[in-house]
Amino acid sequence: MPESLFKVNIEEYMLPGNRACSGCGLSLAYRYALKALRKNTILTIPASCLTVLHGLYPTTSVVIPCLNCAFASTGASASGILAGLKALNRQDITVVAFAGDGGTFDIGIQSLSGAAERETDFIFVCYDNEGYMNTGTQRSSATPIGALTTTTPFLTKQEHKKDMLKIMEAHDIPYLASVSSSYPVDLYDKFVKAKRIKGTRYIQISAPCPPGWVYPPRDTVKIGRLAVETGMVVLFEIEDGKFQLTGRSKTLAQRGNKLPVIAYIERQGRFSKISAEQVAQLQNWVDTRWEEYLRRAST
């Protein structure tokens, strides 16, 4: 067992008995994100699976203060909270915006870009479950090629996933990280690190979704692990422009034993109609990006 497990904050900020689905990848990642952020945090969340997890009035399942905002305004909402805290002279509080991939890649991108440009001192977290899962699995720009969704029900999605991490990197932010819910200790470490840094910080969590990706809930951790082992998700961090691979992706790069994407695809029902041509396209897309990451890690 990892020794670092004992360093993890033992307190739970997400209470049991919440509305998240059984085997939810977001729920697992959220538990560790809150453990790392601890008290003295204010959350702001747009419409997403996370609002469902937070629950209905008059009770909530999270013990950290949270502001619900409109879908497109997550970045602006965080800027507003910060302005309020500044007026009250409370400098010790971390503001964290938590949005889904729809609220980041598609709908929330303008307010996030604006907040990053203003160098707002907050952490923006995108949990990426590759679709609008809360409203019933619609396609988003984070959905990978070849996936079935309710808005691409026959032909599968024809386009590749948007590289949001590159877009955020172009904003020259001080800290940027990619994490997976299947590696909670790596996730925890990156959140602890992000909390100490000043400026706009962006963290993208890969969170497998059992109903949306169509696999049994018990496989959540396995699917997330396969995503990293096939290179669909790469664990890395960029701190002040310095790129480095972390955790499992680092050992994969050292040993060079990356699995083919088919190992990841075959376990999920959403890829049941993917064509051989699309598998080749996806493999090519993964390999090109992986080569680029390896080149950046070695310089």
């Binding site: 008995g17 919440n18 937070h54 009035y57 008059p58 909530t60 399942s61 999270v62």
Partner: peptide
């Protein structure tokens, strides 16, 4: 005007989903 309070079992006893 509308503020939630933290509570265990916000969605009821989720054990019966099992």
């Amino acid at each position: 005007s509308a503020m939630c309070r933290p509570a265990i079992g916000e969605a009821g006893k989720t054990g019966d989903w099992r």
